[in-house]
Amino acid sequence: MKKLVLPFLVILFFVSESIVVDLWPKNGFYEKYIFVPRFLLIAIVFVTVYVTRFYGIVYGFVFGLLYDVFYTEILGVYMFIFVLIAYLTSKAMRVFHNNVLVTSFLSIVAVSVVEFYVYGIYLLIGKTDMPFEIFLYDRLFPTIFLNTIFVIFVSYPLKQQLIKLPIREREDEDYLL
């Protein structure tokens, strides 16, 4: 039963993004500013730090693929960046102290990196023609704001949940990459 806790948690984060967007009060504010929930990405950063890098990469791959197929229908975009973020997070954690605040900060950095990356790709393939300035003020800043609030509320309980998980091979998995 305990083995199902982690997948269930991540699925919850995956589903919550769509629910948040759907149930957000739809007024002029919603139309002007684009708040993008990146809860799944935050979860993947936390899994990488508090479970293992291997789990982070695998979850990044699987849920990135799910995200691509189910939500955006452009394959590969999120799959690639989620795996890359998991890998870079694990590299970064060697430099920083292992602390909830540091992890939270890293996840916010990851959110902005993903926003820039997706914006770049969509500009490249012509799915958007949003000017950079509008992207910055109407999209990036509200997104960071929303996700920061989310991280403040979720980081500590999420960390506690993840540390409790019975996963044996913590720390000794440097054979991969």
């Binding site: 993004e17 769509s18 948040v20 967007v21 759907d22 684009i34 993008v36 929930p37 189910f70 939500y71 955006t72 229908e73 997706v118 969509y122 799915k127 958007t128």
Partner: peptide
């Protein structure tokens, strides 16, 4: 479901 990254309205 709704596409959470609101680049395309799907």
């Amino acid at each position: 479901g709704r596409n959470p990254d609101r680049w395309q309205e799907l």
